[in-house]
Design a protein around this nucleic acid. Sequence first.
DNA 1: CTCCCGATAT
DNA 2: ATATCAGGAG
Length: 211
Amino acid sequence: MRVTKKIKAEQIAILGQVYKDTKPALKFRNPFELLVAVILSAQCTDVRVNITTERLFAKAPCPQDIVDMGLPALEQEIKDCGLFRNKAKNIMATCEILVREFDSKVPEDFDTLLKLPGVGRKTANVVTSIAFDRPAIAVDTHVFRVANRLKLAVGETPLEVEEGLMKAIPKELWSQAHHWLIWHGRRVCKARRPLCGECPLGEVCPSMGKA
DNA sequence: CTCCCGATAT
DNA sequence: ATATCAGGAG
């Protein structure tokens, strides 16, 4: 199957119809909690992140509280999420910067977010999109896999896929489409055993039955 | 490219 | 037993 512009539009329309009511799976009450939750979410399920952040923010709801708690205690607190030494070091360094340079608030500017330790392109896009309500497409493992399988956007790297998706999707739908792709990746177009048999995109998917 | 890393699904 | 999980840094 050759995936034309028209077929891409159909893919997007179906995704929007099926997943229109989806929202972020990560629990958060403000931009700071979202930022920490997304840093923790690397190579970890959202369910595990939510358990961890609920416990963490009960003890330390603000950047200064985490700084005061100290690195070893933070490591123990987030250990279940994996990669915990790197994540703890990055969260601690980020909190110190937020307190010292940004009045304990999460900056809204994308490039400023990118400079924070532990914050890469995916995390910065999630925060600008979800916390600050600006159009962005964060390419995580689900978005990367689903976009490539659909050939909605093909690329070897997350950045290539991000750029392809921005061309294929109207800007006003970027943030929503990001959620549609994630939920489709979680529920149907799974990494290991995709449920092609019950996929609403079967007719417009070039990878149908090939995984 | 490799390393970081525990929990979970298959 | 092993692949995968809302990645990022060196």
